[in-house]
Write a protein that binds this DNA or RNA. Structure first.
Lengths: 332, 332
DNA sequence: ACCGCTCGTGCGAGCGCTTGCATAGACTTG
DNA sequence: CAAGTCTATGCAAGCGCTCGCACGAGCGGT
């Protein structure tokens, strides 16, 4: 592959110095109008594109943002990445994707070696050690997603409100005995959801149990379903949608009517939540907005537009679909 | 953010020239054993990490692979990207994600500006113009996924075999009247699936109709479902799983038993296919393997390990689940 | 003792771009 | 009209690294 035209080539062709050509692109206001026009025309004719690498070396900025996440195949992430990519593109950055494959050591390594590679990092890592993140943050600007650490910028999708709405919703349907199906024990989100559900249930004098922890997978949900059936509760709140889908499946399989006998709900409102049968009641996490916010926070910090380490919390809302309904008693 | 230690710093500390330090990392065999040990120790102590940008500028290679795709949020892509990322990582490359947002112009622009930015590109772009790709391929090594163009390397997930298996499967269940629900008219995969289904149906003397085109979305499937119901066929093959899920939903909603009255099947075997009710019979596209292969093809070309432009076709297999079953007559 | 080797190391010229500083001309201004 | 302002351009020093080449030391063979 032949290297493409360089500044030098364009300069030679235009009969000006390379600085002038360089400025024609990066500081147009410093250049005479005619000169600029001519240079642009020639550059275009020669198919010139600035060499990003060289520019990076000279400026010390790569125009790259890294996104660090455990597994892009987890359905929660693609919408996030999508929003990040879009926003980054609009602001002149490209996105470096780093899948840690759930390996903490690989993550730590990436985080360390990343210093020169990207201007900043968006870290979605529910698991990794606080200390590792803190020390990485000293070398590279970081924005955390769905996790907060003192002194590091972050944007989180709070589900406190959404869960409260959900419990209210169940209560209004006549439910008085509900269970929460806990996800991974190390997850911050899980704790938040559990606590919020418990609090609201207590406030409404509902019977409330926690089952689990279960893995946040379809199989985890399948396992949890049996416990739900045994619990006698009339409604189950699963840690997330994928788990809820497992619950749905297993309950249906065992002959339980959903929502006729048991109401089921999830959290995150992933793409497929609307596609289950019955469609899943869930809590819509504003994940795309989180992505956008994360990028903006990061770039603002990078460009010095804002020095403060902001911690943003977005909140999700209940999305009622067919998997929650009146209790058997209520529909009597 | 302070710049991290440079070669120069390490060299000074070790009392050797920077070339020696450089070689200690990149050409260890050229360096005296003791010198090297000492250098590595010092580098480690100083927290030295080679500056990728500078290295790129000097070598002309970025160690970056770009992945160009229409929309990462499309559930077909994440497993692909995952595999690409993994394989690339193992071979020392990072992945640049470029979401074209289905905009052809943006895609063309990215493709053009990408020359210096990445060493090679993996293009998943069912839509973009052949000419645009061909001309991009002249400047940057490219591997196409699920698309073939003469003279450009590619890896495709053929569904010909899988579709044939599917039709056989339906035939063996007693179906004699089936429909194919066509996806986007410009899609190469659609044509392949349609043709393969038609051919095999004809061979088995089944009645065969094509309905559509429909958008390859859940809503598209919902629309298609009504046509399926009206068609009188006993089995429907949807262009892809997402569409099949729409069909499933709408049929169930209208009181059709699946697979009791109508069998439904999809294609791609996305993550969620196993989670519908009934779980969806589908054709497993070896998408992860495609990702791996694409990366290997690309890197081999980059490193000169292989000069030829290979066109690999992988083939998918039928995955039978609950959404297909005997015809009413058969089970009668 | 000399030659020619190999081996480990240093030198220095880039890679393509940005940017602070210098400069030349054109244009004010008292 | 000399002195002072601008404005548009050029010069050249990097940015941190790689790599071809040169070099000196140590070695065995003659």
């Amino acid at each position: 592959m032949a290297r493409s035209a360089s500044l030098k080539a364009v300069a030679a062709e235009a009969g000006v110095s390379i600085s002038t050509v360089s400025r024609a692109f990066t500081r147009p206001e410093l250049i005479g109008h005619d000169t600029r026009e001519q240079i642009l025309a020639i550059a275009d004719r020669l198919g010139y594109h600035p060499n990003r690498t060289a520019r990076s070396l000279a400026t010390g900025r790569t125009a790259l943002l890294a996104v660090l996440l455990p597994d892009i195949a987890n359905p929660f992430f693609p919408p996030l990445v999508r929003a990040v990519e879009d926003t980054a593109y609009d602001r002149g950055y490209s996105v470096l994707l780093m899948d840690t494959d759930e390996h903490l050591d690989r993550e730590a390594k990436l985080l360390r070696s990343l210093s020169g590679q990207a201007d900043g990092v968006i870290v979605c890592s529910p698991r990794s050690r606080t200390e590792a993140l803190r020390s990485a943050a000293e070398r590279t600007p970081i924005v955390l997603v769905n996790r907060t650490i003192e002194g590091i910028a972050s944007v989180s999708c709070g589900t406190r409100d959404g869960v409260r709405q959900l419990v209210d919703h169940l209560h209004s349907l006549g439910h008085r005995d509900i269970v929460y199906l806990a996800g991974p024990s190390s997850s911050w989100s899980d704790r938040e959801r559990r606590d919020s559900a418990r609090r609201q249930a207590k406030k409404l004098s509902m019977r409330f149990q926690v089952l689990g922890h279960y893995p946040a997978t379809f199989e985890g949900g399948v396992m949890a379903a049996d416990a739900v059936a045994a619990s006698g509760a009339t409604a189950a709140i699963a840690f997330d949608d994928v788990m809820a889908m497992g619950v749905l499946r297993r309950l249906t399989e065992r002959g339980f009517a959903v929502p006729g006998q048991v109401s089921v709900s999830g959290c995150d409102d992933i793409f497929f939540a609307a596609m289950t049968s019955p469609p899943l009641t869930s809590i819509a996490t504003p994940i795309a907005e989180a992505g956008r916010t994360a990028v903006n926070l990061l770039i603002d910090e990078l460009t010095g537009a804002s020095r403060e380490k902001r911690q943003v919390t977005l909140s999700g809302n209940l999305v009622v679909r067919g998997s929650t309904g009146p209790t058997p008693a209520e529909r009597g």
